[in-house]
Amino acid sequence: MALLSIGDLDVFYGRAQALHGVSLEVEAGSIVAVVGPNGAGKSTLLDSIVGLTRRRGQITFADTDITRMSPARIIRLGIGYATERGNLFPFMGVKENLLVGAYRKRDAIEANLRTVFDLFPRLEERQKQETATQSGGERQMASLGRALMSSPTLLMVDEPTLGLAPRVCLEIAAVLKDLNERLGLTIVITEQNVNFAMSLAREVYLLETGRIGEPRTPEELRESPEIAAAYFGD
């Protein structure tokens, strides 16, 4: 059975419906990407998985129905979430941010800190710096690091490359690949950058104005004419 499975998910902001009958499956050990333009509902989808929106449908994670659980309980089941803006604690140092990430997982703090600092040596060098003064790339690293501090089985990253220089994107991609291959972490990312998504994921979902398609492999995507027109420019 899939590690994460979403069936027929509807999400509302007030009266406006942001997601329409979205279904998605994530096998344990895989990397899945959800690709879509601005306003498609990518952030809404990830927020909904951890229970932050008003939603209807069925979401199961690790054989548990989480559709009606509180966010903190869902997170505790083993989901790490690096949000679009990071949602770091601006007037805390980098290390303190990481420690808050360990709020539910206090028995592995030293080991997890080691893992995060090995992945991002910059964070270790500047562990006392307040995240308010960090660069965008450093903040992305801190946000990923904080998500890893709870020893998650599923890592969700909302637009990991947003606003980052190509070199930093490559760095982040390498880290995500490493986490998946070496530690067996299951990963869901959202992206506008379809090339970045295809370089990581074996399965890519297209999301547009709140509606999702069937998953496709990068090869299928390259051959599909509509996609080529919409995303690669003809």
């Binding site: 932050l52 997170i75 949000t83 770091l88 709020y103 539910r104 709870s150």
Partner: peptide, 12 residues
Amino acid sequence: MDRKGAVISGIE
């Protein structure tokens, strides 16, 4: 400092 950041860290 950041309510959403706290929630996704597992804080109630």
